[in-house]
Simulated assay, not measured.
Amino acid sequence: MSKNENNLERFQLLAQHEHVFACPLCFNPLKVIAYKSFVCSSGHCFDFAKQGYVNLLTRPYQTKYDTSLFAARQHMNAIGFFEPLISRISESILRLMQPHHESLRILDAGCGEGSHLKSIQNQIRERAKIAPLGVGLDLSKEGIKMAARGTSNAIWCVADLARCPVMERSFSVILNLLSPSNYAEFHRIMADDGIVIKVIPESDYLQEVRAALNPNASRKTYSNEKIRELFKRHFALLEMERVAYRIALKKEQLHHLVQMTPLSWGASESLVQQWMNQEQAEITVDFSIMYGKKR
């Protein structure tokens, strides 16, 4: 399939599900016009990008996340770095959302370059023989451009989580993986029988990287208690689980690991180079997953 054919297919998918989307300025419904633009009844217009995504920001934003970070994260996802986490989430979605499998709509709030959402969609498709709609939102245009490459049953939008450009109660699953949250918006856009899934790093996450690149910071006590309490103030906690494992990485993979994490931003160049020059290393991966629903 050519790039133009893939983009047409993406915009056809967008037209098929246009009723899910709302204007980020006035929150009136958006309509697809000639597979070229989103237009609301107030006349606000958002053109589709030739790369296969739609920019629904009301003003430009600058983020610290660049193409090299997203490419590194995509590479780490491809080698299975996040596989145990993705597998657990996919299993839990199918278990918790019975009997609503056929109508699953998943929104990834803070999707980055889209690899987590794509992997979860693929696993659900393989396990349950269904194809849930996926919508990925992120402030970073570079991340969304990368997400829109290739084929998938997903719609990619540059958007602000503080003004999610989707209709009320339109998603059965809200994903929020290692990303900032806007719980008021999550509550607004989540279906009454839906779930929100938040993933946060735990105390041992990338402890080897932290110890090497920020030796003083690594000695500080790490706690997610405030994040957990904030989540529980907004949603009824269905369950919480910890996913921890170790993975062996080779030199090239260690290079990508450093590139994908902000842990290297404050580190000296000598420490970063010393870390990346290792031939291999065992890395600790440590997450908590919280599953919530409306009260």
Rank of each mutant, 00 (worst) to 15 (best):
C23A: 05
G143T: 08
E229D: 11
E208Q: 15
D108T: 10
D192A: 11
A184G: 08
R295F: 08
I283F: 05
E229G: 09
V39T: 11
F81C: 01
F27L: 05
K198V: 05
V243C: 09
I195G: 04
A236F: 14
K118R: 14
E83R: 15
A267N: 04
E279Y: 05
I200C: 05
V158A: 02
T284H: 06
H101G: 06
D108G: 05
W156Q: 07
T261D: 01
V54K: 00
S103C: 11
I130R: 11
Q98P: 00
T58E: 05
Q273E: 07
T284W: 04
C111R: 03
H19E: 14
K250D: 08
A49N: 08
F231S: 06
P84G: 11
I247T: 08
N153W: 03
R59Y: 13
L161Q: 13
Q280N: 10
L139E: 06
S268W: 01
E208P: 09
G150E: 02
H101Q: 07
F235N: 02
D47C: 08
V39G: 00
P165G: 15
S41Y: 06
K118G: 01
K145H: 07
I124S: 04
P215I: 09
P60G: 07
H19S: 14
P60C: 07
W275F: 15
N122L: 14
E208A: 14
S218N: 12
L263V: 09
N216L: 10
A236Q: 15
Y245S: 03
N153M: 04
S2V: 00
F287E: 01
D192C: 02
I33A: 02
G143M: 12
R188P: 03
C45H: 03
E18M: 05
A281R: 14
E252F: 08
M260R: 10
L104Y: 11
V158K: 02
T67S: 12
L57D: 10
L139Y: 13
G134K: 07
M260L: 13
A217H: 12
L175F: 06
F81H: 09
N216H: 05
N182E: 14
L177R: 01
L139C: 08
L14K: 00
Q259D: 12
E269Y: 05
E269I: 09
Q12T: 05
L230T: 09
C26W: 03
S288A: 12
D193Y: 07
L69V: 14
K232D: 06
A267G: 07
K250H: 08
